[in-house]
Design a protein around this nucleic acid. Structure first.
Length: 283
DNA sequence: CTCGGAGCCTGTCTGC
DNA sequence: TGCAGACAGGCTCCGA
Protein backbone atom coordinates (compact mmCIF):
# COMPACT_ATOMS: atom_id res chain seq x y z
CA UNK A 1 0.00 0.00 0.00
CA UNK A 2 2.51 2.58 -0.96
CA UNK A 3 0.96 5.98 -0.32
CA UNK A 4 2.66 9.35 -0.44
CA UNK A 5 5.19 8.79 2.39
CA UNK A 6 6.26 5.42 1.02
CA UNK A 7 6.71 6.74 -2.51
CA UNK A 8 8.57 9.78 -1.18
CA UNK A 9 10.89 7.48 0.78
CA UNK A 10 11.60 5.38 -2.28
CA UNK A 11 12.31 8.42 -4.45
CA UNK A 12 14.67 9.97 -1.90
CA UNK A 13 16.60 6.73 -1.62
CA UNK A 14 16.78 5.95 -5.31
CA UNK A 15 17.53 9.40 -6.70
CA UNK A 16 21.22 9.57 -5.69
CA UNK A 17 21.76 6.08 -7.03
CA UNK A 18 20.18 6.32 -10.44
CA UNK A 19 20.14 9.95 -11.55
CA UNK A 20 22.79 10.52 -14.20
CA UNK A 21 22.95 6.87 -15.20
CA UNK A 22 22.12 5.55 -18.65
CA UNK A 23 19.70 2.76 -19.43
CA UNK A 24 21.57 -0.10 -21.04
CA UNK A 25 18.92 -2.79 -21.27
CA UNK A 26 15.27 -3.33 -20.38
CA UNK A 27 13.76 -6.66 -19.41
CA UNK A 28 10.00 -7.05 -19.38
CA UNK A 29 9.19 -10.28 -17.55
CA UNK A 30 5.43 -9.86 -17.22
CA UNK A 31 3.55 -9.93 -20.51
CA UNK A 32 0.87 -7.73 -18.96
CA UNK A 33 3.44 -4.92 -19.11
CA UNK A 34 4.46 -5.71 -22.66
CA UNK A 35 4.29 -2.52 -24.65
CA UNK A 36 6.22 -1.37 -27.62
CA UNK A 37 8.33 1.09 -25.70
CA UNK A 38 11.32 -0.72 -24.18
CA UNK A 39 13.49 0.08 -27.19
CA UNK A 40 12.86 3.81 -26.68
CA UNK A 41 14.53 3.64 -23.30
CA UNK A 42 17.85 2.27 -24.44
CA UNK A 43 20.70 4.70 -24.01
CA UNK A 44 18.48 7.32 -22.40
CA UNK A 45 19.95 9.16 -19.44
CA UNK A 46 17.98 9.41 -16.21
CA UNK A 47 17.84 13.17 -15.72
CA UNK A 48 15.80 13.14 -12.54
CA UNK A 49 13.59 11.14 -10.25
CA UNK A 50 10.59 12.58 -8.49
CA UNK A 51 7.22 11.85 -6.96
CA UNK A 52 3.91 12.91 -8.48
CA UNK A 53 1.08 12.00 -6.14
CA UNK A 54 1.69 8.31 -5.59
CA UNK A 55 3.61 7.87 -8.82
CA UNK A 56 7.35 7.60 -9.23
CA UNK A 57 8.56 9.56 -12.25
CA UNK A 58 11.84 8.79 -13.99
CA UNK A 59 12.79 11.68 -16.22
CA UNK A 60 14.51 10.37 -19.32
CA UNK A 61 16.56 12.35 -21.76
CA UNK A 62 16.82 11.00 -25.28
CA UNK A 63 19.90 9.11 -26.45
CA UNK A 64 22.90 11.31 -27.09
CA UNK A 65 23.21 12.22 -30.74
CA UNK A 66 19.61 11.35 -31.54
CA UNK A 67 17.80 13.95 -33.56
CA UNK A 68 14.36 14.52 -32.09
CA UNK A 69 11.57 15.23 -34.51
CA UNK A 70 10.19 18.72 -34.68
CA UNK A 71 8.10 19.69 -31.65
CA UNK A 72 9.53 16.75 -29.72
CA UNK A 73 12.48 17.37 -27.47
CA UNK A 74 12.90 13.63 -26.89
CA UNK A 75 12.12 13.93 -23.19
CA UNK A 76 10.06 11.09 -21.75
CA UNK A 77 8.77 10.22 -18.33
CA UNK A 78 8.66 6.65 -17.19
CA UNK A 79 5.74 6.63 -14.75
CA UNK A 80 5.75 3.88 -12.14
CA UNK A 81 2.62 3.28 -10.09
CA UNK A 82 3.09 0.71 -7.35
CA UNK A 83 -0.61 0.39 -6.48
CA UNK A 84 -0.95 -2.32 -3.85
CA UNK A 85 2.11 -4.49 -3.70
CA UNK A 86 4.54 -2.93 -6.12
CA UNK A 87 8.17 -2.31 -5.21
CA UNK A 88 10.91 -0.43 -7.00
CA UNK A 89 14.25 -1.50 -5.62
CA UNK A 90 17.80 -0.62 -6.61
CA UNK A 91 20.00 -3.66 -7.00
CA UNK A 92 23.66 -2.76 -7.01
CA UNK A 93 24.40 -6.06 -8.72
CA UNK A 94 27.07 -7.05 -6.25
CA UNK A 95 28.65 -10.45 -6.78
CA UNK A 96 27.28 -13.28 -4.70
CA UNK A 97 23.65 -12.29 -5.15
CA UNK A 98 21.24 -15.18 -5.69
CA UNK A 99 20.56 -15.74 -9.36
CA UNK A 100 17.01 -17.02 -8.90
CA UNK A 101 14.34 -14.68 -10.24
CA UNK A 102 11.14 -14.61 -8.20
CA UNK A 103 7.98 -14.78 -10.28
CA UNK A 104 6.85 -11.44 -8.88
CA UNK A 105 9.64 -9.55 -10.67
CA UNK A 106 7.88 -7.89 -13.57
CA UNK A 107 10.60 -5.76 -15.13
CA UNK A 108 14.24 -4.81 -14.78
CA UNK A 109 16.00 -1.68 -15.96
CA UNK A 110 19.70 -2.34 -16.31
CA UNK A 111 21.78 0.79 -15.80
CA UNK A 112 25.48 1.60 -16.22
CA UNK A 113 25.92 0.43 -12.66
CA UNK A 114 23.27 -1.74 -11.02
CA UNK A 115 19.62 -1.99 -11.97
CA UNK A 116 16.13 -0.95 -11.00
CA UNK A 117 13.88 -3.89 -10.21
CA UNK A 118 10.10 -3.59 -10.48
CA UNK A 119 8.52 -6.29 -8.37
CA UNK A 120 4.78 -6.69 -7.82
CA UNK A 121 3.04 -9.77 -6.47
CA UNK A 122 -0.53 -8.78 -7.31
CA UNK A 123 0.34 -7.21 -10.64
CA UNK A 124 -1.86 -4.16 -10.10
CA UNK A 125 1.06 -1.81 -10.58
CA UNK A 126 1.71 -0.07 -13.86
CA UNK A 127 4.63 1.18 -15.93
CA UNK A 128 4.04 3.62 -18.73
CA UNK A 129 6.11 5.90 -20.86
CA UNK A 130 4.73 9.32 -21.69
CA UNK A 131 5.70 12.80 -22.72
CA UNK A 132 5.88 15.07 -19.68
CA UNK A 133 2.94 17.15 -20.88
CA UNK A 134 0.79 14.03 -21.15
CA UNK A 135 1.19 13.09 -17.50
CA UNK A 136 -1.71 14.24 -15.37
CA UNK A 137 -0.74 15.63 -12.00
CA UNK A 138 -4.09 14.75 -10.39
CA UNK A 139 -5.25 16.72 -7.36
CA UNK A 140 -3.34 19.06 -5.08
CA UNK A 141 -0.25 17.59 -3.44
CA UNK A 142 -0.56 17.89 0.34
CA UNK A 143 3.12 18.72 0.69
CA UNK A 144 2.91 21.81 -1.51
CA UNK A 145 2.00 25.37 -0.57
CA UNK A 146 -1.15 25.05 -2.63
CA UNK A 147 -2.61 22.74 0.00
CA UNK A 148 -4.22 25.37 2.23
CA UNK A 149 -7.29 25.08 4.42
CA UNK A 150 -9.08 27.42 2.05
CA UNK A 151 -8.21 25.20 -0.91
CA UNK A 152 -9.40 22.11 0.93
CA UNK A 153 -12.68 23.84 1.77
CA UNK A 154 -13.14 24.77 -1.90
CA UNK A 155 -12.57 21.14 -2.88
CA UNK A 156 -15.09 19.97 -0.28
CA UNK A 157 -17.75 22.30 -1.67
CA UNK A 158 -20.51 20.61 -3.63
CA UNK A 159 -19.82 17.06 -2.49
CA UNK A 160 -21.95 15.03 -0.12
CA UNK A 161 -19.51 12.14 0.12
CA UNK A 162 -18.32 10.90 3.49
CA UNK A 163 -14.98 12.45 4.29
CA UNK A 164 -12.89 9.26 4.46
CA UNK A 165 -13.76 7.96 0.98
CA UNK A 166 -13.43 11.55 -0.23
CA UNK A 167 -9.85 11.77 1.01
CA UNK A 168 -8.94 8.77 -1.15
CA UNK A 169 -9.86 10.65 -4.31
CA UNK A 170 -6.60 11.30 -6.10
CA UNK A 171 -8.24 13.87 -8.37
CA UNK A 172 -8.86 16.04 -5.29
CA UNK A 173 -5.90 15.46 -3.00
CA UNK A 174 -3.07 13.41 -4.49
CA UNK A 175 -1.20 11.01 -2.29
CA UNK A 176 -3.45 9.92 0.56
CA UNK A 177 -4.44 6.28 0.86
CA UNK A 178 -6.48 4.31 3.34
CA UNK A 179 -3.89 4.27 6.12
CA UNK A 180 -3.10 7.97 6.28
CA UNK A 181 -6.69 9.05 5.63
CA UNK A 182 -7.76 7.11 8.74
CA UNK A 183 -4.84 8.41 10.79
CA UNK A 184 -5.35 12.04 9.78
CA UNK A 185 -9.06 11.94 10.61
CA UNK A 186 -8.27 10.46 14.01
CA UNK A 187 -5.71 13.15 14.70
CA UNK A 188 -8.20 15.83 13.60
CA UNK A 189 -10.95 14.23 15.72
CA UNK A 190 -13.33 14.11 12.79
CA UNK A 191 -15.62 11.16 12.14
CA UNK A 192 -14.81 9.37 8.86
CA UNK A 193 -18.57 9.08 8.31
CA UNK A 194 -19.18 12.84 8.19
CA UNK A 195 -20.27 14.15 4.78
CA UNK A 196 -17.69 16.70 3.67
CA UNK A 197 -20.29 19.47 3.33
CA UNK A 198 -20.90 19.31 7.10
CA UNK A 199 -17.26 19.97 7.94
CA UNK A 200 -16.82 23.56 9.05
CA UNK A 201 -13.88 25.91 8.56
CA UNK A 202 -12.22 25.18 11.88
CA UNK A 203 -12.45 21.44 11.28
CA UNK A 204 -11.12 21.81 7.76
CA UNK A 205 -8.10 23.68 9.08
CA UNK A 206 -7.59 21.00 11.71
CA UNK A 207 -7.82 18.26 9.11
CA UNK A 208 -5.29 19.95 6.83
CA UNK A 209 -2.87 20.26 9.71
CA UNK A 210 -3.43 16.62 10.70
CA UNK A 211 -2.81 15.40 7.16
CA UNK A 212 0.48 17.31 6.99
CA UNK A 213 1.54 16.09 10.42
CA UNK A 214 0.81 12.44 9.68
CA UNK A 215 2.50 12.51 6.29
CA UNK A 216 5.61 14.23 7.60
CA UNK A 217 5.91 11.87 10.55
CA UNK A 218 5.48 8.88 8.24
CA UNK A 219 8.15 10.14 5.84
CA UNK A 220 10.50 10.61 8.78
CA UNK A 221 9.82 7.01 9.79
CA UNK A 222 10.46 5.73 6.27
CA UNK A 223 6.81 4.84 5.63
CA UNK A 224 4.50 2.11 6.89
CA UNK A 225 5.16 -1.56 6.23
CA UNK A 226 1.96 -3.42 6.91
CA UNK A 227 2.84 -6.44 4.85
CA UNK A 228 4.15 -5.80 1.38
CA UNK A 229 5.74 -2.38 1.29
CA UNK A 230 9.51 -2.15 0.94
CA UNK A 231 11.61 0.95 0.37
CA UNK A 232 14.07 1.55 -2.47
CA UNK A 233 16.64 -0.62 -0.73
CA UNK A 234 14.30 -3.45 0.12
CA UNK A 235 13.95 -2.32 3.74
CA UNK A 236 10.83 -1.95 5.89
CA UNK A 237 9.17 1.23 7.10
CA UNK A 238 8.83 2.00 10.79
CA UNK A 239 5.60 4.00 10.97
CA UNK A 240 3.40 0.92 11.52
CA UNK A 241 4.42 1.02 15.18
CA UNK A 242 3.00 4.51 15.50
CA UNK A 243 -0.40 4.03 13.88
CA UNK A 244 -3.15 5.13 16.23
CA UNK A 245 -6.17 3.49 14.61
CA UNK A 246 -5.36 1.76 11.31
CA UNK A 247 -5.43 -2.01 11.71
CA UNK A 248 -6.20 -1.69 15.43
CA UNK A 249 -9.89 -2.65 15.58
CA UNK A 250 -10.79 -3.77 19.09
CA UNK A 251 -7.73 -2.17 20.68
CA UNK A 252 -8.27 0.73 23.03
CA UNK A 253 -7.93 4.34 21.89
CA UNK A 254 -4.77 5.82 23.39
CA UNK A 255 -6.63 9.01 24.27
CA UNK A 256 -9.90 7.75 25.79
CA UNK A 257 -9.64 3.94 26.03
CA UNK A 258 -12.70 3.39 23.85
CA UNK A 259 -12.33 0.34 21.58
CA UNK A 260 -11.31 1.27 18.03
CA UNK A 261 -14.02 0.38 15.54
CA UNK A 262 -13.79 -0.85 12.00
CA UNK A 263 -16.48 -0.14 9.43
CA UNK A 264 -16.75 -0.58 5.69
CA UNK A 265 -17.00 2.51 3.51
CA UNK A 266 -17.28 2.12 -0.26
CA UNK A 267 -15.80 -1.36 0.03
CA UNK A 268 -12.81 -0.30 2.12
CA UNK A 269 -12.04 -0.64 5.79
CA UNK A 270 -12.17 2.45 7.94
CA UNK A 271 -10.72 2.49 11.45
CA UNK A 272 -11.69 5.15 13.98
CA UNK A 273 -12.40 5.93 17.61
CA UNK A 274 -16.19 6.33 17.95
CA UNK A 275 -15.69 8.56 20.99
CA UNK A 276 -12.89 10.91 19.90
CA UNK A 277 -14.36 10.99 16.40
CA UNK A 278 -18.01 11.34 17.30
CA UNK A 279 -20.32 11.63 14.28
CA UNK A 280 -21.83 14.85 15.55
CA UNK A 281 -19.71 17.91 16.18
CA UNK A 282 -16.54 17.35 18.19
CA UNK A 283 -15.64 18.85 21.58
C1' DC B 1 -22.79 15.15 -12.37
C1' DT B 2 -22.24 12.25 -8.36
C1' DC B 3 -21.50 8.21 -6.11
C1' DG B 4 -21.21 3.18 -5.16
C1' DG B 5 -19.87 -1.26 -6.66
C1' DA B 6 -17.44 -4.71 -9.67
C1' DG B 7 -13.23 -6.16 -11.41
C1' DC B 8 -8.39 -6.58 -11.66
C1' DC B 9 -4.69 -9.93 -9.00
C1' DT B 10 -2.49 -13.46 -5.76
C1' DG B 11 -0.66 -14.62 -1.09
C1' DT B 12 -2.38 -15.38 3.42
C1' DC B 13 -5.59 -16.44 6.76
C1' DT B 14 -9.97 -18.67 8.50
C1' DG B 15 -13.33 -22.21 8.94
C1' DC B 16 -15.29 -26.57 7.80
C1' DT C 1 -4.36 -32.06 7.06
C1' DG C 2 -6.58 -30.12 3.00
C1' DC C 3 -9.19 -27.25 0.60
C1' DA C 4 -12.57 -23.59 -0.47
C1' DG C 5 -13.67 -19.04 0.34
C1' DA C 6 -12.88 -14.51 2.31
C1' DC C 7 -9.92 -10.79 2.50
C1' DA C 8 -6.53 -7.13 1.46
C1' DG C 9 -7.01 -2.50 -1.51
C1' DG C 10 -5.54 1.70 -5.52
C1' DC C 11 -7.59 2.67 -9.37
C1' DT C 12 -10.66 2.44 -13.63
C1' DC C 13 -14.88 1.58 -15.59
C1' DC C 14 -19.79 1.28 -15.62
C1' DG C 15 -24.47 1.96 -14.25
C1' DA C 16 -28.04 3.92 -11.16
Amino acid sequence: MPELPEVETIVRQLAPKVVGQRVQRVEILDSKLALDWPACLIDCRIGGLHRLGKQIILELNGPRGAKPAAEDDGRRWLCVHLRMTGRLIFDAGLPGEPSKTPRSIRARLHLDEGMLVFQDVRRFGTLRLAKPEEVCAGGVDPLTKAFTARRLAQLFAGSRMAVKPWLLRQDKVAGLGNIYACEALYLARISPLRPVHTIDAAETARLRKAILHVLKQAIEAGGTTFSDYRDGQGGRGRFQNRLAVYGRAGELCKACATPIERVNQSGRSTFYCPNCQAPLQGP
